[in-house]
């Protein structure tokens, strides 16, 4: 256990990086995902097709391959090395955007078309109907799925191991090998991931129950 205590700061820094990557991935993915969902809604047939291909491609490919793509491609396009962190951020944001745009689409589809028709019949403009009737209901339906996706992303950030970025898992594996304490360190890492995800899942469940 001493080896773990001595390296506690290093492990905590790793956990902070995992949580930071999750936050950036959620915020960036949500922004780009909203843009994609809007393009699908208002972009006509061509816009819809572009979004369909984007979503299908990112959902077909393993995240590790996406991380490799950007780890290799971003420096090549920019003409200078950018480091593992920047390329991982780009990979997560683009990857998550595909999933978030689908969640937004599902949320919008969950609002029955009668709601839109009723709002229009009441004399609201198309935009007002979206803003005051459809989006609030859709948002309520999406919220729990957003958070569940964030928990999935938190677990997925551990894949930056393959580009040697020091997230929590990579930090744990470095400590495990350096101190020769694989059993204790990996079991501790399991416990940390388990408790964080379980806590977050419980929070989502409570939110779902308290939602009207």
């Amino acid at each position: 256990m001493n080896a773990l205590w001595d390296n506690a700061a290093f492990l905590v820094e790793g956990l902070a990086l995992s949580l930071g990557l999750t936050a950036i991935g959620v915020l960036g993915g949500l922004s780009l995902g909203t843009a994609l969902a809007a393009l699908r809604l208002f972009g006509g047939r061509a816009g819809g097709a572009v979004v369909d291909v984007y979503v299908f491609a990112f959902r077909a490919v393993p995240l590790i391959l996406v991380i490799f793509w950007f780890y290799f491609m971003v420096p090549l396009i920019l003409g200078r090395p950018v480091g593992a962190f920047a390329s991982a951020v780009v990979a997560f944001v683009l990857f998550e955007a595909a999933y978030y745009s689908e969640i937004i689409r599902g949320g919008l589809a969950s609002v029955r078309p009668g709601q839109m028709n009723a709002a229009l019949a009441c004399g609201m403009s198309h935009l007002a109907a979206l803003r005051y009737v459809v989006l609030p209901q859709a948002f309520r339906a999406m919220m729990p799925v957003f958070l569940t996706q964030a928990i999935v992303l938190f677990q997925d950030t551990s894949l930056v191991f393959v580009v040697s970025l020091h997230d929590f898992l990579t930090a744990a594996s470095i400590v495990a090998n350096r101190a020769g304490r694989l059993v204790e360190t990996y079991l501790l890492a399991c416990l940390v991931y388990y408790l964080v995800c379980l806590g977050a899942t419980a929070a989502v469940a409570r939110m779902r129950r308290s939602a009207p």
Partner: peptide, 23 residues
């Protein structure tokens, strides 16, 4: 179900590979 769903798969691989044989 909750154990297998709340621990990243990559870590589960490491546990099966490095930890389980020791135990």
């Amino acid at each position: 179900v909750s154990v297998f769903r709340n621990i990243p798969l990559i870590l589960q691989m490491f546990v099966w590979f490095f930890v389980v044989p020791e135990l």
